[in-house]
Design a protein around this nucleic acid. Structure first.
Lengths: 182, 182
DNA sequence: GTCTATATAAAGATAGAC
DNA sequence: GTCTATCTTTATATAGAC
């Protein structure tokens, strides 16, 4: 570890790594500073609160989801749009495994989302758009189980060994089975 | 809240409620004491460490999984056994939603499991037994996505409204789709 | 079996020197 | 832009009175 570098492009990945391993609540600014080889004060120079760091780390993930939802809006509603959402989510979740794991799994995130209305909107749309047309009662359950399963790779060492392509295809396959893709 | 009651049968449900809402790392002994209406010292009279409380809260869930795995051992290996596991897990996860959510979702739990080998064994067996026979590459992924999805109800208010029976059937349905039940 | 009070460490956060 | 030093609060944990 090279000492004395708390630039944004180094700080945020370090924080993400710790959030993924210990959770947001289980990660202190001291741990982030140690990971970077700097003092806590150096971290505070870039972000005046811990919440600011959490938000900066997660923001790109929420933006990606929002962009995906926006992008598939031009497709016909129904199976085709659901398939595009599933494929897009699989691609993003595989490419940014830790980021999506924190966003979808960490119990501290709902509170953050509640404090930032801009974060909530994309997921509300996503959940609605992913629902199969029939099976009204259990459709939300299928969507929730798919989204929860999306981050299954995070903790499992056996799955961590899968290639991006294997994992992406596996996730899409599960999406097909749960969400009646067209 | 009646004041002055930190008996085990009151303490553990209160702790579980807080663990489910704020995560294990996000829950302090002060929060537990406040929830019970007693002082921190009263809590420490029953459990000398926080880890002791976490273990006492989660132990029944791990025991249930172990008992389930043990119970299905008499069934023929394969689809029939997988179905029994899925039905048993669905039943337990629905009945003890918060407990299973903490056990399967909280990032602090893997560290706890690592420190208590007796906790790890049942899940290793469970994961192995749940795997469909074919599809060797993505079978562990299907299992992991099912287990992660098992606790999807925890955070979603829309799903929290489902009855136990609706939820149980929905989970079994997803298990059927992912795990090639016989 | 609970309380108040306290010890000790670590948390989030700031001030001011370099 | 980072440092040391410090502040304040909160964390885990203990001692001893009731």
């Amino acid at each position: 570890m090279v000492r004395g570098d708390a630039r944004e492009e180094v700080l945020l990945p370090a924080a993400l790594k710790l959030f993924a391993r210990h959770g947001v609540s289980g990660t202190s600014l001291q741990m982030i500073a140690d990971e970077l080889g700097v003092s806590k004060a150096a971290v505070y120079h870039h972000h005046h609160t811990k919440e600011s760091i959490v938000l900066a780390v997660l923001w790109p993930a929420f933006e990606q989801v929002a962009a995906l939802v926006e992008r598939v809006g031009s497709l016909p509603a129904g199976g085709a749009r659901r398939r595009a959402l599933v494929e897009g989510l699989a691609e993003q979740a595989v490419t940014h495994r830790q980021l999506y794991a924190v966003m979808l799994r960490d119990v501290a995130v709902p509170a953050l989302v509640a404090s930032e209305p801009r974060l909530a909107a994309p997921f509300a749309v996503l959940r609605r758009e992913l629902q199969p047309d029939h099976e009204p009662a259990t459709a939300p359950l299928r969507v929730a189980m798919f989204l929860a399963g999306l981050v299954a790779p995070a903790g499992d060492p056996e799955i961590a060994q899968l290639s991006d392509e294997q994992l992406r295809r596996g996730i899409v396959d599960v999406g097909e089975r749960l969400l009646d893709l067209g």
